[in-house]
């Protein structure tokens, strides 16, 4: 299983906090973005323009996902 978590304004816009999916459905970050787009009915671009963290380390669109991974999608943030 892969845990996908969504943060930032995209989470509020989509109402989707994240998904638990099996590895056969998402092989890489790109696939995870497509899955989120399909689930939420929004453009895949919005997800591809997020910052990706895999198990707390920066990831890329092409990064492969492994069983047990946690993928986090973040939007840029500022202001404190």
């Amino acid at each position: 299983m892969v845990t996908i978590k969504l943060f930032g304004s995209l989470r509020l816009k989509t109402g989707c906090k994240g998904l638990e999916v099996s590895l056969s459905d998402v092989r890489d970050v790109k696939g995870a973005c497509q899955l989120l787009a399909d689930e939420t009915g929004r453009s895949v671009k919005e997800f591809r323009n997020c910052v990706f963290m895999i198990n707390g380390k920066p990831g890329r669109l092409s990064s492969a996902l492994r069983d047990g991974d946690e993928l986090v999608l973040l939007a840029a943030a500022g202001g404190g």
């Binding site: 930032g8 973040l74 943030a77």
Partner: peptide, 9 residues
């Protein structure tokens, strides 16, 4: 999200 939106990042 206000400034609170920074927590997760």
């Amino acid at each position: 999200l206000g400034t609170a939106g920074l927590v997760s990042t």
